[in-house]
Amino acid sequence: MRVIGGILLKFFLSIIGIILIGGLPVLLSGIGHRELRLQAYVQSVKDIIYALFHPGDLTYIIIGGQLERDLFPYIWDPISYSLLVLFSAFLLACFLSILLTILTMLFSQRNRDRIKFTLYLIESMPDVLVILLSQLFVLSLYKQTGILFFEIASVATERAFLLPVLVLAILPTVQLFRISILSFESEESKDYVTLARSIGLGKLVILTFHILRNAVVSVFFQSKKTVWFMLSNLFVLELLFNITGITRFLMSTLQPKMFTIAILSIFIPLFVFYTLGEMVLSKKANKGEEI
């Protein structure tokens, strides 16, 4: 019960923080006149809280437009689209980083250093450059073969999905690889690995059945930084691929209520995902399933 209480407290404090941040633009809008609009800020926070309890009453107007729309159910489509791309790219990055780590660990230390150096160079590339190069690569393949392997932009009848997922996963894969290779190399020097080698277990078996289950715990807890990095790239991705996702919706209407709801739509799934993951890993550790 204490654990659940701590989780709920963390959740509600996070919600309160997001609500308070959602009203900040109103508070800071008077800085140009050397004043903080405290009264307007309090009213904005009240409006946000009211909107959260009465979402069916919400409408929005796109910047530069005149048409007023109901927020629900319209907003579910960009939310689901963005979350599907985000989680698919994250899971792909996790899988590829672990796979690359296991393959790298099979090489000698000298070759490992070469592989790590190459991937670190890739990590230093700007995200916009990665996206543009991927689109140019697909267009080049289409020009050579006449086959469009991936949709390079979303249109009214077709949605780009596979290529955005692949592109969004590239740099996070390298980031997670950097974390996982350090974890694997740290585990490699421990006594249980020496024992496993002494009884004749092969290197691949030790990596996949022993080191992996311990190293993946560290990778999971440190992957939160990678998710925040992916969120920062999500807007650029949606813009360049013409994806009607939640971050583009966020930029199309700068009302505090809409901003808060958009942030909550991203925060809540991520909070649930990491909370469940931490609970599962903690239970396994308590049961001694970690070697």
Rank of each mutant, 00 (worst) to 15 (best):
residue 6 G to Y: 11
residue 6 G to F: 12
residue 6 G to W: 11
residue 7 I to W: 07
residue 7 I to H: 07
residue 10 K to E: 12
residue 12 F to Q: 00
residue 12 F to H: 01
residue 13 L to R: 05
residue 16 I to M: 14
residue 16 I to Q: 08
residue 19 I to L: 08
residue 20 L to M: 15
residue 26 V to I: 15
residue 27 L to E: 03
residue 28 L to H: 02
residue 34 R to N: 12
residue 35 E to Y: 08
residue 36 L to R: 10
residue 41 Y to R: 05
residue 49 I to M: 05
residue 51 A to P: 02
residue 52 L to Q: 05
residue 54 H to F: 09
residue 55 P to A: 04
residue 58 L to H: 02
residue 63 I to H: 08
residue 73 P to E: 01
residue 76 W to R: 06
residue 76 W to H: 05
residue 78 P to D: 04
residue 79 I to T: 08
residue 79 I to G: 01
residue 80 S to D: 06
residue 82 S to W: 01
residue 83 L to Y: 00
residue 88 S to W: 04
residue 88 S to D: 03
residue 88 S to V: 06
residue 89 A to D: 01
residue 92 L to R: 02
residue 96 L to C: 12
residue 97 S to P: 09
residue 100 L to V: 02
residue 105 M to Q: 10
residue 112 R to D: 08
residue 114 R to T: 07
residue 115 I to L: 13
residue 126 P to Y: 03
residue 128 V to T: 14
residue 132 L to S: 07
residue 141 L to T: 01
residue 148 L to A: 11
residue 155 V to S: 15
residue 157 T to L: 11
residue 163 L to C: 00
residue 172 P to A: 03
residue 174 V to D: 08
residue 183 S to I: 02
residue 189 S to P: 02
residue 194 T to K: 14
residue 194 T to G: 13
residue 195 L to W: 11
residue 203 K to F: 04
residue 210 H to W: 03
residue 216 V to I: 15
residue 218 S to V: 10
residue 219 V to L: 14
residue 221 F to L: 09
residue 224 K to G: 10
residue 225 K to V: 08
residue 229 F to A: 12
residue 230 M to A: 11
residue 237 L to T: 14
residue 238 E to R: 10
residue 241 F to Q: 03
residue 242 N to H: 14
residue 242 N to E: 06
residue 247 T to Y: 11
residue 247 T to L: 13
residue 249 F to P: 00
residue 251 M to A: 14
residue 253 T to N: 15
residue 256 P to V: 11
residue 261 I to Q: 06
residue 261 I to K: 03
residue 264 L to E: 06
residue 267 F to N: 09
residue 275 T to I: 03
residue 276 L to I: 14
residue 277 G to E: 12
residue 278 E to L: 08
residue 284 K to F: 14
residue 284 K to P: 04
residue 285 A to W: 06
residue 285 A to N: 13
residue 288 G to Y: 06
residue 290 E to C: 02
